[in-house]
Design a protein around this nucleic acid. Structure first.
Lengths: 188, 188, 188, 188
DNA sequence: AATGAATGAGAGTTCATTCAT
DNA sequence: TATGAATGAACTCTCATTCAT
């Protein structure tokens, strides 16, 4: 479903990389422009300002996760054990190859109290993630239990990405996915 | 004209608040100075540069946790159930009243790949936290299991603080501490 | 509100004037900008930093002297007496109308032990000057004598410019050129 | 005739060293204080401001030269050949061991058009130097010739110090003194 | 006399943004 | 659409100077 690969998308892709690695404030418009082979003035043909790039970057990643990952939870023609494994697989694939960790987590901590338009998208993503997980967990747990477990596992995943990022070491991270899977696979 | 006798510790305290709420790059020397009732130039009387304030802020909080929190784990004259409850109590007290979340977590995500002198202190703190937790868990679990659980709970705590911060809602956070306590209190 | 199309060369020309009159450290980026009708931030569009302006200024003057003055020495189709007169004429023309003296001499004394990239260009210029003079003097003197005389006359010229500058009086300076000419014109 | 070695003199001595090596504007009050083992605020007990240190430094060196060097010219109970040799000897002793060159020459070029109180002292020194030399040269040359030669040799000395300083090489400098001596010693 | 905290101006530099070409 | 020159505000940091202690 890859779309036109417009310049706009290229700018977003490069911005995502930079925001993850360098942070939002520490990434300049010149950094973004350089990464795209442009001059900084030229970016304003595509985005109104830096914040617009920030929001678009978050939305871009959010859309990817909704379409490619969270949607898996709702493919009820597949058994839930298969769905949860696919779900975790996709998430692991993404974060184990994502230099700089998770854009949502990073910007959540850097900008939480300052840029409300950003936190809005971040919250929406985390909620979609939690709901998708909870939807699957409800096959075995009560609605309330499922939601609590889902929230816990999203938080744990974010904390693990933070540690993985800090230590440049993915060992610990991997066990998170397996724990989630086992929540549904273990015989009760 | 002159003399207000601002101490290094005062500057650090104000900086910690600002760094947590606004982030590192988004906090200016003028912001810090203003919070201390000084002009921006005056801060350089106390700190060589902004990075020195950053490292000192991290070290200040780290020292507090080592002395006031992590040390509890090693007070072996107390029963482990009492120690873990005190330990969690102290951590909860801190983070439930800490506007802007956890300085270590926030700066870890904002600066991980950019300021190695910062990540050094952050790593040290997380390791001290993990070791203190593991030390208590070893009363009931193998050395290896204890360390795995400790790492998991530190990550989970960080992730929970992130969510609490994002949603301005402490509900979910509180259950993390209780889960850790129950790891040691439940009859096996 | 933009666009005045200031060229690099314009900035260099104004900088040379200012550096000669006020010295390097005492000339601010704002001074340079103002002389060019710009704001200080705008200069960074043309030069990476102040030192780059300094080196470019020295190089600009050096290139002028190489092309317009020192080259005269090597126009061997002209008799040496004509060459030396032209050579001295050009140098006099320059320094008698150069407010603030000689950029090379001034910056040599202000920055000799601090900015090695500057002293490099300054040395190169003085050496080119000495070699050009020596090349002409070799028509009447041995290689060694010619070089000694050349070095002496460059030093004397620099000292004379210093005095001319200090006293706002060109009398003494003018005799230096005549002495050099007479070195080649007098019957031995 | 060494006087009380007051703090004031110490500050001047350190300032002279720093001004010669780093230039006037590039030497901060903190630099001077540090060199004296003081804090920068303390200097203001001895000097009203930085310019006062600058003028005092120039005057200090000027007084030294008047008393120890230029005075030699007027000791008419000695033969002029002995006087000129002593004179040159003293000057060579000074400049061959003077890191950073000549304070008068350096500040002349850095501050000529900016600090008139400085140029005043500098001019006075150079004039005293020229007059002392001329006084001796008058034994063999007309008044006018003597003055012209004296001015020429002071300028040449300054130019030579500049080159010596720039190249970190004293070879060429030494011949200047000998040339002056030979002006009086050669049989006509 | 010396200290050390503070000042206030200004240094060099960066940055998001604008806009004529 | 892209460029590149310019803006103006803000940034980190330095400096000469002041003054209560």
């Amino acid at each position: 479903m890859a779309t036109k690969k417009t310049s706009k998308e290229e700018i977003i892709k490069e911005s995502v990389k930079l925001f993850k690695l360098k942070g939002y404030y520490n990434t300049s418009m010149a950094d973004i422009a350089k990464a795209c082979g442009l001059l900084k003035g030229s970016i304003y043909h595509h985005f109104e300002n830096k914040d617009a790039i920030g929001v678009s970057s978050l939305t871009y990643i959010h859309d990817f996760f909704v379409k490619e990952v969270y949607s898996i939870a709702y493919k009820t023609h597949l058994p839930v054990t298969e769905r949860i494994e696919l779900f975790i697989q996709k998430i692991d694939d993404y974060f184990l190859h994502s230099e700089g960790g998770c854009l949502f987590g990073n910007l959540a901590l850097e900008l939480a109290s300052e840029k409300l338009s950003f936190t809005q998208v971040i919250k929406e993503d985390f909620e979609a993630w939690e709901e998708a997980l909870a939807f699957m967990l409800k096959e075995k747990y009560s609605d309330k239990e499922a939601m609590v477990l889902a929230k816990e596992y999203v938080a744990l995943t974010q904390g693990s990405i933070m540690m993985m990022n800090l230590h440049n070491n993915s060992e610990q991270y991997l066990q998170v996915g397996q724990k989630i899977i086992s929540l549904l696979k273990e015989e009760s």
